Simulated scan of single mutants.
Amino acid sequence: MTVTKLSDNEITMKVCGVEITTNEVFICLLSHDHGVFTVPDCRQRSITSTKNPDTAAIRGFYAGFNKLMEDYSVDEVVIIERPLKGKLAGSTLGFKLETAIQLIEMPVSIITPSTIKEQLKRNRINIPFEGLGLKKFQQQAFNAAYAYQSQLLFQNK
């Protein structure tokens, strides 16, 4: 991971936030550099998998996601944790996609919805989501990336 520490609480890094649904992965890139967050352009906002993927499809997803992260020089991927049981539990395919992401050649972290909520409450975003140039379906992925970076930046506050 290429994280540059500029001072006691300032870092420079690019994170990809990930939200996984039944057969779709929503992504959002977020950079932090010299105290400023930016949302870099990305050629993909979501990646859809077939409902019944075989080994070749999962390998294709893995290769495509890994290449996307390399192309945009992402330092770390942050995935929103999903429940294993209950009404909101993740699908089998979703867990396969998550596993493929976790195997890419860079650090991958899992962030809980409660941590995201806590960080968003503690470190408010000063611009409306609509002003970021993202699609509505990317909001949770953005929140994950922002919360993760905020947690690193402001961990001593």
Rank of each mutant, 00 (worst) to 15 (best):
T2P: 11
T4M: 14
S7A: 13
S7D: 15
D8L: 12
T12Y: 06
K14S: 12
K14E: 09
C16T: 07
V18L: 04
E19F: 01
T22A: 11
E24D: 01
V25C: 08
F26G: 00
I27Q: 01
C28S: 14
L29S: 05
L29K: 07
H34G: 07
H34C: 12
G35H: 13
G35Y: 11
G35K: 10
F37S: 05
T38R: 15
T38Q: 10
D41L: 02
C42G: 10
R45L: 07
I47G: 05
T48C: 02
T50R: 14
P53S: 08
P53C: 03
A57H: 15
G64D: 11
K67G: 03
L68A: 08
L68W: 00
L68P: 08
S73G: 14
D75H: 09
D75T: 11
E76N: 11
V78I: 07
I80T: 13
E81C: 03
P83W: 00
P83E: 00
P83V: 02
L84T: 03
K87D: 13
K87E: 12
T92P: 13
L93K: 00
K96A: 11
E98S: 03
I101R: 00
I101H: 05
L103T: 09
L103V: 07
M106T: 10
P107V: 10
V108F: 07
V108M: 06
P113I: 04
P113R: 14
T115A: 14
I116K: 04
E118G: 10
E118K: 13
E118H: 14
I127N: 12
P128H: 07
P128T: 08
G131C: 13
F137M: 00
Q138N: 05
L152P: 06
L153I: 08
F154N: 15
K157C: 05
